[in-house]
Computed example of a mutant assay.
Amino acid sequence: MTDRTFLPCRIAVLTVSDTRTADDDRSGDTLVDRLTAAGHVLADRAMTPDDRVGIAEHLTRWIGEDAVDVVLTTGGTGLTGRDVTVEAHRDVYDKEIDAFATMFTIVSMKKIGTSAVQSRACAGVAGGTYLFALPGSPSACRDAWDEILVHQLDYRHKPCNFVEIMPRLDEHLRRKSCPS
């Protein structure tokens, strides 16, 4: 049992695809269902084509919004020529969360074996906002949420979690106080 109270995060979901529509966006639906079931708030939801500049612009817009704490993208993390989500994420990161990719690979390996090597899921922080790039399959989104994000985005999770350090993510951007 924990002495901490759940603190809901405001999470935006971006589906990256040249072929999906809002009617058949099962990966986006999976993320929305899971985050709201966990008690978080859906801050926004959108779709964008596989275009590096467009993806980065969308991320940057949400990073600048006070109403968004976390961005989850789904799609575009593979190896094909149109898969540019990872590059777009890295274009905006202040810091990369390297261990997220490792953890996701470990989780995936248990489910899909050596095929996990084909994913380039990644995560980072920009302007005090967490950004997670997840594969475009509903099962990969479920795995990332159920095995990693549901815990790390829960303030009650111990020994540590992403929520408890959220207030300090952008401390380097704040003005330093003058010495007395």
Rank of each mutant, 00 (worst) to 15 (best):
V13Y: 08
T15R: 02
V16H: 09
V16C: 14
V16K: 10
V16A: 12
S17F: 04
S17D: 03
S17Y: 01
S17I: 04
T19L: 03
R20L: 07
T21R: 09
T21A: 12
A22S: 15
D24K: 01
D25V: 14
D25M: 10
R26A: 15
R26Y: 15
S27W: 09
S27K: 04
S27A: 14
D29L: 13
T30R: 10
L31T: 03
V32K: 07
V32P: 05
D33I: 08
D33W: 07
D33A: 09
R34L: 14
R34H: 13
L35I: 01
T36R: 01
A37K: 07
H40Y: 00
V41S: 09
L42R: 00
D44H: 02
R45L: 12
A46M: 10
A46P: 09
M47D: 06
M47I: 11
T48R: 08
T48C: 15
P49Y: 03
D51P: 02
D51I: 05
D51T: 02
R52N: 14
V53P: 07
V53L: 12
G54H: 09
A56Y: 04
H58G: 14
L59W: 04
T60R: 14
R61K: 12
W62F: 04
W62E: 02
I63G: 08
E65C: 15
A67L: 10
V68H: 01
D69Q: 08
D69F: 02
V70Q: 05
L72W: 13
L72G: 06
L72V: 04
T74Y: 02
T74S: 03
G75R: 01
G76C: 08
T77N: 07
G78M: 01
L79G: 13
L79I: 10
L79W: 14
L79C: 13
L79E: 11
T80K: 05
T80A: 15
R82S: 02
D83K: 04
D83T: 03
